[in-house]
């Protein structure tokens, strides 16, 4: 199986804040991992490090047996926490544009996902609500078959319908046994059954890590309640 991610003693400092402190994390392949923590806990920094957008001051990062760099991004789908799509493009245009960059783009999945996520492909991104734009951003990741999917807080600030649709699409397109997903969020609720493994992070450090079901058994509580206990 091997590891999809291996971080060893990673430290990333910004002026005035330590985003990650001596952070170590290993994740097996083929799992859906929930990266849970409040805002500012270091989730986004972790994602950016994995993508190679930023470099750590200390420590080592191995992603899919390589070092983060622009070319390893062919094997990773990254959904940023930010509203990153060009408002002047139509959904069709953004799909065509993005598909040119990836060999693992599955053209056949486009219509399925448009339907699953209820997206009209001829509309301009700029005319959509935030939830709708999030659906499009997630769709761009799911149209591919990457080894690793990084979703940075896709559930925050979106409506319940969008949330349910995103979750459903995520599960329906998930390549069981082949794909790893790391989903960062601070709102768990209905997303709970998605996760194999949970990593709680706070102030740039891991608070608690384990298999979701083992944690539920051990604490006899659901993850949302464990979250409340961990971060109280």
């Amino acid at each position: 199986m091997g590891l999809v991610l291996d971080l060893k003693n990673v430290t990333k400092k910004y002026p005035g804040v330590d985003a990650l402190k001596d952070f170590s994390l290993s994740l097996d392949r083929g799992k859906i991992v929930g990266l849970l923590g409040p805002n500012g806990s270091g989730k986004t920094t972790l994602m950016k490090l994995i993508m190679g957008f930023i470099k750590p001051q200390k420590g080592e990062i191995t992603v899919l047996d390589g070092v983060p760099n622009p070319m390893i991004r062919e094997k990773i789908a990254y959904v940023s926490e930010l509203d990153v799509l060009y408002p002047w493009m139509t959904v069709r245009e953004i799909l065509d544009f993005t598909s040119n960059f990836y060999r693992d783009w599955e053209k056949g999945k486009e219509s399925e996902l448009l339907q699953l996520l209820a997206i009209e492909q001829d509309k301009k991104i700029g005319t959509f609500s935030y939830g709708m734009r999030t659906r499009v951003r997630v769709m761009l990741a799911l149209c591919r078959k990457p080894e690793l999917v990084l979703l940075d807080d896709p559930f925050s600030g979106i409506d319940l319908v969008s949330r349910a649709k995103v979750q459903d699409a995520l599960l329906k397109t998930y390549h069981y046994k082949e794909q790893s997903i790391v989903l960062a969020t601070h709102i768990i609720d209905e997303a709970e059954p998605l996760f194999d493994e949970i990593v709680f992070i706070e102030k740039g450090q891991i608070n608690l890590q384990g298999k979701a079901d083992d944690l539920r058994e051990k604490y006899s509580k659901n993850i949302t309640d464990i979250y409340k206990e961990v971060f109280k």
Partner: peptide, 15 residues
């Protein structure tokens, strides 16, 4: 400013 750079730079292309 529009954060579209985040999207652009997440593509597997060199700067």
């Amino acid at each position: 400013k529009l954060h579209t750079s985040q999207f652009l730079f997440s593509l597997p292309v060199r700067g």
